[in-house]
Design a protein around this nucleic acid. Sequence first.
DNA 1: CGGGCTTATCAAACCGGTTTAGTATGAGAC
DNA 2: GTCTCATACTAAACCGGTTTGATAAGCCCG
Lengths: 365, 365
Amino acid sequence: MTQRKGPTGEPGAGSTGEAQTPPRPPRARRPTIGDVAALAQVSKATVSFVVNDRPGVSPQARRRVRAAMDDLGWQPNAGARALSTRRWQTLGLVIRRPPELLSTDPFFPQFVAGIETGLAPLGYALVLQVVPDAESERRAYERLAGDGRVDGVFLTDLRVDDPRPTLVTELDIPALIVGPPQEGSGVPSIGVDDGSGIRQAVRHLRSLGHRRIGHVCGAEGYVHTESRRIAWSEALAEAGLPDLPPAKADFTGASGAQATHRLLDRDDPPTAIVYANDLMAIAGITAATSRGLRVPEDLSVVGFDDIPLADCISPPLTTARQDVPAWGHAAARTLVALTEGKDFQPVELPPVQFIVRASTAPPPA
Amino acid sequence: MTQRKGPTGEPGAGSTGEAQTPPRPPRARRPTIGDVAALAQVSKATVSFVVNDRPGVSPQARRRVRAAMDDLGWQPNAGARALSTRRWQTLGLVIRRPPELLSTDPFFPQFVAGIETGLAPLGYALVLQVVPDAESERRAYERLAGDGRVDGVFLTDLRVDDPRPTLVTELDIPALIVGPPQEGSGVPSIGVDDGSGIRQAVRHLRSLGHRRIGHVCGAEGYVHTESRRIAWSEALAEAGLPDLPPAKADFTGASGAQATHRLLDRDDPPTAIVYANDLMAIAGITAATSRGLRVPEDLSVVGFDDIPLADCISPPLTTARQDVPAWGHAAARTLVALTEGKDFQPVELPPVQFIVRASTAPPPA
DNA sequence: CGGGCTTATCAAACCGGTTTAGTATGAGAC
DNA sequence: GTCTCATACTAAACCGGTTTGATAAGCCCG
């Protein structure tokens, strides 16, 4: 836990009791393009041409410059370059999550990893901000856009009537919505139809013979909460099944358990429940089991996300999975293209995959 | 999924078939310090003094400058400022994780959130890189340090004989190890003693009457895998309990289940198992149950992390929890201080908390 | 009323790159 | 031998801030 200050201890200093810390050696000045130019006996402009692969440099000069770069271990300074080119090679991601949901959501780390795979080969970096509330969120975007720290921003976890599409338009910064398109917002979007996972779930349960299929919603106000609820509701109608009121919850395990109890307390309890995420589904299994129900014999359960735990529990969870890293990858490439002034090209993403495990079975007779 | 191009549709364009996209309006030039200076009728230097709260500006001038800033909505350009001050106000975090572990680990998102709470008030930003292997990891640090994009870097998930402390010393960039101190590395560190959670677990099980307490390790090569294994081993010795060979695993659910079976296949199977993380512990419960053992009556199980699911499953998991956001917060403040040339001050973190739930009980008679 | 001293202000240099406009060189055409 | 015309190369301007050194103005005092 203590820092070694390098090999040169000061033997006398210790006994004096003074805080006589040996001065840390100043950070070495890094070489600049000027140093490289001098060593290679060319002008700064020539060095710049070489590193940016532009024509008009003789092979000899090019060699000398490369040698000088290697010699000095020079890398162009990102700030100086950004100042000239007005291109930061950096994208911004602002995540607004209540702390209690942060470590539960499998989306965020996978998405970030996917973004990286898209960004790294392009030499782009990602600046990340995690904010607790709407006000900090707005400030975060304003700062990112205002001080020119990023070339573009992602908009994730859209809410209904989200102010951010308007905000980024005002801030005049390239942006990409990660999720279903927001008609009329003017902001391009990239996302998969996650309702399809829910529809597959309902069809799967219907084909097993279920007729009363409940739904436990995610946190209110998110578009992906709504789209999953609506997909469930429409799939019921399409299958000619009776409507049930959806049980509100908020993606947390505790809320999922409560919602499960509410559904099972009904006079006509569902024989199957489709949850808006796996965490609630697993909590729901536990809740049902605690009431003496067996899963899947008495109650079928379907989750959403396919978290790593989904097949480590008993019974293994039937759920829907999106290829989140691929999504992040595509989002990164799309936003980079947008910041480079290219026109928006919609991208095809791998569809949501429905995974049947052992938490679903025919309803009790 | 398609982009609206603004309210002015071009009615004729559609039928021609040409890709006659209306030219996107160029991004507006943002105001510069010069614009503010001109509007306030002062020099750029005076504006700079005002924004940086330096003395030597009359109240009148100060007012005029502030008014002009508000009028134009000016924010200093981060790159230009960084170029002059050589301070980026940005920290780097490189995460190297095999993809399959990325979404399982509760540490990473919480830690990032904690970093943010430390960084945001200081006006600092975080650039994040996620890399798949050692080679990309080294390149990531070299790039971050070399192009001056960050003022300092975090080192997380240290491995035994990790090359990074040496690397950051060579790269001459402020760095902070997140985890137990690496003696002799010269790199300061901040971390809690996570062995204490394991020791508490062993003592807890011992006091319940257990005598054969097994351990399922994390992925090989990580210092936190080793420190947990060693803590378990030492705690056994200290409690006068017989040594058992640790069961190797890699933090994944599948490996945890396998390791559990190996332990339970022994002639003298343990009556309690301490897992290096919750995911393996939960998979272990499922594995044990599938063999007809009851948890906790026949086998006690202890996890590590306290993931949100830990108390949503049956039985709720006894586990150890660290205050990861606080850790991230402290790490951020410490690294910022380091980049500002201040001396390293070790920080006291809240200790690991041991949480007793229902997955532990006295051993069978 | 002139000299010393503080305070407010600004022009210019600087950070480290990119880009532009212009010069030097040599080959090829006539 | 001169007149294009590429091609290789460079000096200088520029990006948008910070910082330095100099100057001007105001004040107090003898």
